[in-house]
Design a protein around this nucleic acid. Structure first.
Length: 158
DNA sequence: GCCAACGTTGGC
DNA sequence: GCCAACGTTGGC
């Protein structure tokens, strides 16, 4: 099993929205490196859901991969804000995965908290200008964040 | 609103 | 293939 972190703007789609929906397709990733991480996701992988652009930014909850990658339908929809005219049905540029809610963290873990933890120094979300919308995590990093959020020692999950 | 850090684009 | 210009992201 692998571990990931995905970002979302809660004004657009929050972890609470995912809990309400139970499952959603994670659309709108339009960055090649992030897309390649999406394509590497396997069913059952665990995912931290991070809220960006919120006050404060941080990790809101846990999800898991319900369905591995398939073409993002919004790339073919001329009326959609994520429409990409370069993408062809026979050779799609962009993918989605289906994510299922696995539970909110009892306590929201802010970016400020994350930055204080030595074990999380290598987390990609804290590097590279914080711009990648999908990043891999080490198992240890996943566990540390869960523990910070009051879901410990390891999330019982599902 | 500002700005740093990127990724992308396009001229050459 | 290089690189300057530009656009976007996202914390502050």
């Amino acid at each position: 099993m692998r571990y990931w972190l995905v970002k979302t703007e809660p004004r657009c789609y929050s972890f609470a929205d995912l809990q309400r929906d139970k499952v959603t397709f994670w659309d709108g990733v339009r960055n090649y490196q992030a897309r390649n991480f999406l394509r590497a996701m396997k069913r059952g992988d665990k995912v931290l859901v991070y809220h960006s652009g919120s006050k404060p930014p941080g990790v809101a909850g846990i999800a898991f991969v319900q369905q591995e990658s398939y073409p993002d339908p919004t790339q073919f929809d001329p009326g959609h804000e994520h429409y990409d005219p370069r993408s062809k049905q026979e050779n799609p540029l962009w993918d989605v995965v289906d994510l299922a809610a696995n539970g909110a963290l009892p306590e929201f873990v802010s970016l400020t908290q994350l930055k204080k933890v030595p074990e999380l120094e290598k987390m990609l979300i804290l590097r590279r200008g914080n711009r990648l919308s999908v990043t891999p995590l080490e198992e240890g990093e996943f566990r540390v964040v869960c523990a910070l959020g009051g879901s410990s020692p390891s999330p019982k999950a599902l």
